[in-house]
Design a protein around this nucleic acid. Structure first.
Lengths: 365, 365
DNA sequence: CTGTAGCGGGGAAGCGCTTTCTCGGTCGAG
DNA sequence: CTCGACCGAGAAAGCGCTTCCCCGCTACAG
């Protein structure tokens, strides 16, 4: 049955087998603008399936001048934050008949830039950047230029999470979420806090910390500078951060806020390794609401982000028609309210505070 | 600086800008077999970077007749099992200068088949299937045929985890690992077991359960049929499974084995919701050793699989020269030394039992 | 019966790149 | 000084597909 032919079946082969022209075969299999006599169409379809034909997507892309792929760039695929977003993007893509190619920056802005350069060659319809958000001037400039080139050739760029570059973005309200969390925690009676944050250049980390601090500040509470430690944006970073906090002395601290869940979980393990029981001896809160925080003990209080939906809407944003009106609202209007309504480049995703056992409230303590 | 040109820069533009022929430009930028006068090369490179040129990978693929992409199929990207493997594949790929495209089957064998069909059109160098391993006859046949066609056109296929199709595979010793786990648990004094497994058609689940049962059997221990429940291969499946077990009555059970970690974690939460404290009232063990099992309480006893390495070696297997045959050690002798052992299609990955707090041992109880 | 419009098949010209092949130029050996 | 060998630039022929364009055909109005 399966003969040992060694080079792929081409459209030409199919056309020949069906006894029609190349043009007709192409139209029967893909082209939509013109109708093909049904008898011919059947013949072509039959020939294609008999030969086990499969369209060469590259050739199709060259001929059409456009591809059907979406490039997704994430920081670290084994981090549940990113993999949940990825799941959303993938879902949305294959609903739209698009293929997603995925690359990881390993949280290096340098690599992010390289990747964007390399991915441009793929001529994807869309590039979604869910990777690191950096504030490094130089990097930002080069990245923006590369992306601009991509867009001016007809591609779409979408960022996930807020940032200051003039592209479409799905904005996660890191600041507001953290602020709301702070308020709720104060309402629970907490007054003395510590925090574990990520590297300075990571906007996600700094935004969350800022929101949290400001929330506390609105109640006249401050986090002492030496009660804020910095670590890698990972589980191990959280673990290390907790140890450092303990070493610095946090006897008077009631609650530790880690800027993301994986760090919070790491921190819980870190504290426990020093004989401090999270939830009983000290409260903990995180950010993201990844799946596993429900299953750790105590269950973690956090700020929920609908990550899967974030991924889905990143794709949706990318796919919606380009700039509706003449009113091209470029760059600097990037602040929240883009008055002009037409080119509303940002989509905001709401976050919500979820209180769980890791913050029982100060009365209980 | 950035002019508003609206169609991508082509090689032709670059050649023109540099004042050389298309052929020379191509050779300077990509082609390796022939040397290009250094002065020309510099001119081309300068022109390319001035115009912000980026090679059209599709066109290149068509012209060369081969791509630089790797297609990865997983069951569910937000499951840490798959995302860890994916991380390994991605790492290996970009070390080899390959791009990975990723799709998810949502654990449906039907979708898996469709995906393979669609992906063939991409003409990837490699297809790696880390998705569901099914035992459904019909599906297997169609899948095998599709993959065979792919391979006979020069593609490489690699499966992750053992299965019965004739393709290269990175084999995970599910049976052996589960068996070893059983033995260790018996050594800890446990004698009365229950199990939560996945759907019947999932070979991974059945292999693990079989290994576990056989390990027990070698000590004359059996799991009562009504102490084995079946559920989805996910966290929620584990949760539900635990509840069902409780409902069936497991007062005499000392240890629950879940066929993977996410299910085990779900089960722990399920038990806890019924007032049964894992690790104290009942022991729990899982399989996979995903990252988070270290951070749940109690830390989970499990069987460790080096998931990241599994991903890496899946790619390595795909990239090693096809059936060594006459002993053609290609060009630069790249990568690992494939000494002899020509057609060794399988690579085995060892698993190891990791005992943690969730199985304190029967004495403690 | 003629003129015209619409339908739809097929030839052929691309799409952006690689890779033969041709061919002028250099260089060293005889 | 001549000749063959070699180097390397450029012309051109593809790669597998889409799509424009031409053209023969049928249908229908005048």
């Amino acid at each position: 049955m399966t003969d040992q032919r060694t080079s792929p079946v081409t459209l030409h082969d199919v056309a020949q087998e069906a006894g029609v022209s190349l043009a007709t075969a192409s139209r029967a299999l893909n082209g939509s603008s013109r109708t093909v006599n049904d008898a011919y169409r059947q013949r072509v379809l039959a020939a294609a399936s008999k030969l086990n034909y499969s369209t060469n997507l590259s050739a199709q892309a060259v001929a059409k001048g456009s591809t059907t792929s979406v490039a997704l760039i994430v920081g670290d695929i084994s981090d549940p934050y990113f993999s949940s977003i990825a799941a959303g993007v993938i879902k949305g893509s294959d609903d739209a008949g698009l293929i997603v190619t995925m690359s990881v920056t390993e949280r290096s802005t340098q690599r992010e830039l390289e990747l964007v350069r390399a991915l441009r060659g793929q001529r994807p319809r869309v590039i979604i950047l869910a990777g690191s958000r950096s504030s490094e001037e130089e990097h930002q400039g080069a990245l923006a230029q590369e992306l601009q080139a991509f867009e001016s050739n007809g591609g779409r760029v979408v960022f996930v999470s807020q940032h200051e570059l003039p592209f479409d973005t799905v904005r996660i309200d890191n600041y507001g979420g953290a602020r709301a969390l702070a308020l709720e925690l104060v309402a629970l009676g907490y007054t003395r806090f510590a925090a574990i944050t990520g590297e300075h250049a990571l906007l996600t980390a700094t935004d969350r910390l800022a929101g949290f601090s400001d929330g506390l500040a609105s109640h006249g509470i401050m986090i002492a500078p030496d009660h804020i430690v910095t670590g890698a944006f990972t589980r191990d970073g959280g673990y290390a951060g907790a140890l450092e906090l303990v070493d610095r002395g946090i006897d008077d601290v009631e609650l530790v806020f880690a800027v993301n869940d994986v760090m919070a979980i790491g921190a819980m393990s870190g504290l426990r390794s020093r004989g401090i029981e999270p939830g009983r001896d000290i409260a903990i809160a995180g950010f993201d609401d990844i799946q596993t925080v429900r299953d750790v003990t105590p269950a973690l209080t956090t700020v929920s982000i609908p990550l899967f939906e974030v991924g889905e809407s990143a794709l949706a944003v990318a796919l919606r028609p380009r700039d509706v009106g003449v009113g091209v609202v470029t760059g600097d209007g990037a602040g929240a309210g883009v008055a002009g309504a037409s080119a509303e480049r940002d989509v905001a995703v709401a976050t919500s505070v979820v209180l769980r056992a890791s913050t029982p409230g100060i009365a209980v303590r």
